[in-house]
Design a protein around this nucleic acid. Structure first.
Lengths: 223, 223
DNA sequence: GCCACCGTAGTACCGGGGTACCACCGCCCT
DNA sequence: AGGGCGGTGGTACCCCGGTACTACGGTGGC
């Protein structure tokens, strides 16, 4: 069950959101806030999985409210809703730690799937915003040409097979055995076998040491 | 009407995509390519709106094919499909000019809406990839304006106390709770309390993510 | 004086991780 | 034909890690 707090200064807008969300079996609306301060207070009280946050609100605005909610360190994720897809909002919201951005007039399904994604730890961005995000991101990437140095060429990894190195890479990215199994289309028992062999071959006592090894050997690069 | 070219070396995979796409009234499959060179040639011939591009293909891979298709200056957009959401793929694909990234085992609806978004000029990223994209993007943004972030200090660590940062450092070194307790002269329950709070504040689901965070924020340096 | 925060510590519980086995298949090499 | 190796899969078991609570002393601010 996903719990949601709605933060918007327009009662009619809140009503619409509530109707939509409550029509879903797996979503519960814990409450409604009409400004940023209320949103912060209610989040601290109710610990919703997701706060649906409007940016423009009287008093404390949505960005600042987002910043404080994220800083509180709770598990609550903030999904920012904006009427205009203005860039400065996205930037400020990103710095504030929001988990996603949607446009208010999105399709209901988009909103719902966005909430579910954010609740499960993923992030979402409205399609019309994604383009800019990609462009801006690409612009800031290191200038390398893609060809060149092969990572993970370390003596401690030499005993590993291709497959094992592949598994070690995703271990280094923090994937759980279950995730590895699902994303690589394997049985969890197979993953465990691989992991066990990797630990034995590299002399790591647990996957944590393996993660560290993956970083030290540059098999995985800091992001 | 949206026209699509499928580029994938696995016939079965191509068949699945074709079946899915042709079931849609507004999408037409113009053809199928089984490697990068074919994809480039067929794109130049058929001018599809979207190329569904697998990364792993014999001969010319999907990244290079994407680079050349985009460089050709046609209106064709490339939507990259990957089995593994490995970061270097995303980076390379971005530099190559792809309009989106989806994971192969995504829901059919996700794939379809992705194709439609890309065809209409938007960009899409699989929800499970978006998080990293946002994080990486936010990291590269110019430092905040008014509100004071501590200089040289990563935002994701700002909520941590001195002691918690200390604990996170040794978590990053791979110490177990028992070891931390022994070496820092604490009760293991205390260590667990600290670790729990660190995970909550940093949004890490387990200590593995915390280790990765410690490396990414350079709280711990590769040895 | 009171409250918020920090660091410390405890208990109880559960799930995932890791280990120790075993097994089967496909491939390549001798 | 046989054997080794890599990749896959299974079962059974135990322990550590993580969560959810509660609690208490010290400190600093209002």
């Amino acid at each position: 069950m996903t719990t949601v707090l709605i933060a918007d200064d327009q009662p009619l807008q809140r009503f619409g959101f509530r109707m939509l969300l409550e029509s879903q079996d797996d979503i519960t609306v814990l409450g409604e806030a009409s400004n940023g301060s209320e949103a912060i207070r209610m989040t601290a009280e109710l610990h919703p999985d997701v706060v649906l946050m409007d940016i423009r609100m009287p008093g404390l605005d949505g960005i600042e409210a987002t910043r404080r909610i994220v800083a509180a360190g709770d598990r609550t994720r903030v999904l920012i809703l904006t009427t205009f897809d203005l860039d400065e909002y996205a930037h400020a919201g990103l710095r504030a730690g929001a988990s996603g951005f949607l446009i208010k007039d999105a399709q209901p399904e988009e909103l719902l799937s966005g909430i579910r994604s954010v609740a499960s730890g993923d992030a979402v961005v409205a399609p019309s915003l994604t383009r800019r995000l990609l462009d801006a991101y690409a612009q800031h990437l290191p200038a390398g040409d893609g060809t060149g140095d092969v990572a993970g060429d370390d003596a401690r990894l030499s005993a590993l097979t291709e497959r094992e190195r592949e598994i070690l890479t995703v271990i280094g990215k923090g994937w759980t055995n279950t995730e590895i199994a699902a994303r690589l289309h394997l049985a969890e028992s197979t993953v465990k076998t691989h992991v066990g062999r990797i630990l034995a071959k590299t002399g790591s006592r647990d996957r944590i040491q393996a993660v560290i090894l993956a970083y030290d050997t540059k098999l995985v690069e800091p992001s």
